[in-house]
Write a protein that binds this DNA or RNA. Structure first.
Lengths: 365, 365
DNA sequence: TTGTATGCGTTATCAT
DNA sequence: ATGATAACGCATACAA
């Protein structure tokens, strides 16, 4: 009542829109439509109670003035920014762009926008988090390793979190993941059944829990089958480390192994190319090569890689669902949705007839 | 003075943090530190004038309370969200993840966060824009085709825009791009000089201005050189359309052309694989294949593609620079930074010795 | 259904 | 250097 919110349609200072034109607010629309500001606000809220005619007049005025609600102001009061932070480690890794793309699409379907946190290394998650808190995101999908302290901070701040393709260290945290252990065991079983005895593993980077799980499961299964322990060499998830890995394996073993299991497809492709084009090794005749993820190039004719596909679309949809449920109903019950990988036979490994080989049955070589 | 901003450290209702715990605000910190709220605010502003001791006490209180400034509230008054919208068309396209990753890194260096707008098709830019206005982003980097109307809206709303790798239709809009025309002419010249006469082009999707420019320039250069017009078939920028394209070319021409120029590397790889593995065509012996972008797989041993590399990192840095300058100084002068592509000889095309062949010199075949 | 009044959490403008 | 106070633009309880 004191100040009549004058809606200064003329700038306070002299220059006409010289610096930064005043933004159009709901007050301007209200003035133009001859209604109150709250009426305007209601017109932009889905389930509001507005009369047909008021709505029409407001919308007409809004359209004419190019009015668009200010999300910052809205989020201040509603405590909803409609933004979801997606923390992802390495966009050049082929697997992650696919994940990001799917996640983005699924989140948009739920009316959420993606605020991107692209880490150079998975270890850089700390600084990203402090930024995340600032931006008042409604929730976070993290495809990066989070420490217990980090996870605790999510709880303290009541920010819903869904881990994507990352196992939280036995915490009660929501997660969507693919059963890497099962996938890895399946792969080893198939290869062993086909007669491979000496395995090698080109591992992923040390900070990748996914790769660690794949390696562990493979070793475990090999031991169960009574096969010799594999040669394990480190890799960096990139093409050249696949080639480097193969050379290291051969150096360490003194000969070409029967099969190389690579921590991801890109390394498998690097390994494959090195074997064929550099070392002249017949794949799969003399050496079998397998990877993980079924990224697009793994399916190209030059490779036709033996690999394991994660149901990315389903996983992304599950992650988005999980997160928006967490956001809408302040539910705190932790859920983990586990998907299983699909074996892609490809043509870079000698494989027995699958019908004869039950998945997890121990086999004498 | 009326209400003492009681800073209700106990929830108004009975349940203790049952629903959604009250957020920690600068008032809470002020109370704990025994200073005013504005003092707290100043402590979080870089160039503020605060005494050493006040600063220390405030920061201690803030740390203890886990206080983090609310970016939404800040942006409401400062009119700066520190968010930049990145509009990108197709993350599964290999070229774009690279671009996004670089842009993200460069923007973070300038204190900006990326709000991602991932379009399924470039034509879907309309709905994305209305979202963009809501979120009060400081600026936009668009790697998608924008109509004149869209561009006009940016001006009306005073939202800085930088087009990335997209030519604005002769508008005065800031842009960072790679000289596609020059690149395409360079490629044609090199191939023509090496004796190729019958060309074919596998074009990109109709809504890709980049692909159109590449095609136009190639045709232009072929005409200049007095070579027969190329067979042009459409593609979709993906692997299979490279193979489809090659088959279409052969069908239309009635024979295998001397060279196929593909709108991007992924199609070139598809074309290459089809030629070698499906049609048994010797590349480059009988057919030369070339692409654009120098995406990572183009450099893999199985392909070693003849292609043109865009200086992505420089382009991303330039785009980020340009945008933040636009944001900081409300400058309206349009600038376009054009980079030139680098020819990657590869091994999928027969090429003459480059030293003998000045770049744009007409050559008799 | 509509309008009034208040608050969201911060920064900015003043005095002091 | 510090504190009071007024925006910022919107949503919402409440009164009408």
């Amino acid at each position: 009542m004191k100040k009549a919110k004058p809606s200064p349609s003329s700038p306070p200072c002299g220059h006409p829109a010289a610096h930064e034109a005043r933004r159009v607010t709901s007050y301007d629309v209200a003035l133009a439509a001859g209604v109150s500001q709250s009426a305007v606000s209601r017109c932009f809220k889905p389930g509001a109670s507005v009369s047909k005619e008021t709505y029409a007049r407001v919308m007409a005025a809004a359209a004419q003035l190019d009015y668009i609600p200010n999300a910052a102001a809205r989020s201040l009061i509603t405590r909803r920014s409609n933004m979801v932070a997606v923390v992802i480690s390495n966009l050049t890794n082929l697997y992650y762009p696919e994940a990001l793309s799917e996640l983005s699409q699924q989140l948009v379907r739920h009316g959420k926008r993606v605020l991107l946190f692209n880490l150079a290394r998975e270890a850089d998650v700390g600084p990203a988090l402090s930024d995340i808190w600032q931006y008042q995101v409604d929730g976070v999908i993290a495809s990066a390793g989070l420490s217990d302290e980090h996870i605790a901070e999510f709880e303290r701040r009541h920010v819903p979190l869904v881990m994507f393709n990352r196992a939280a260290p036995d915490q009660r945290v929501n997660s969507v993941l693919c059963d890497q252990r099962d996938a890895s065991r399946m792969l080893v079983s198939r290869l062993a059944a086909a007669g491979h005895r000496q395995f090698a593993i080109i591992d992923g980077p040390a900070d990748s829990s996914v790769s660690a799980e794949r390696r562990r499961a493979a070793c475990e299964r090999l031991a169960e089958l009574g096969l010799p322990p594999p040669v394990v060499v480190p890799g960096r998830y990139d093409y050249s480390s696949g080639a480097d890995g193969l050379r290291a394996v051969i150096a360490e073993l003194g000969r070409v192994p029967d099969a190389v299991i690579c921590g991801n497809d890109v390394m498998a492709i690097g390994c494959l190319d090195c074997a064929r084009h550099e070392l002249g090794i017949d794949v799969p005749g003399r050496l079998s090569v397998a990877g993980f993820d079924a990224v697009e190039p793994s399916n190209w004719l030059s490779y036709n890689l033996t690999t394991l596909r994660q149901p990315m679309q389903k996983m992304a949809a599950a992650a988005a669902d999980l997160l928006v449920n967490l956001i809408d109903s302040h539910d705190t019950a932790a859920e983990r949705r586990v998907f299983s990988a699909q074996f892609i036979a490809g043509a870079t490994a000698r494989l027995g007839a699958p019908s004869l080989l039950p998945k997890a049955q121990p086999l004498a070589a």
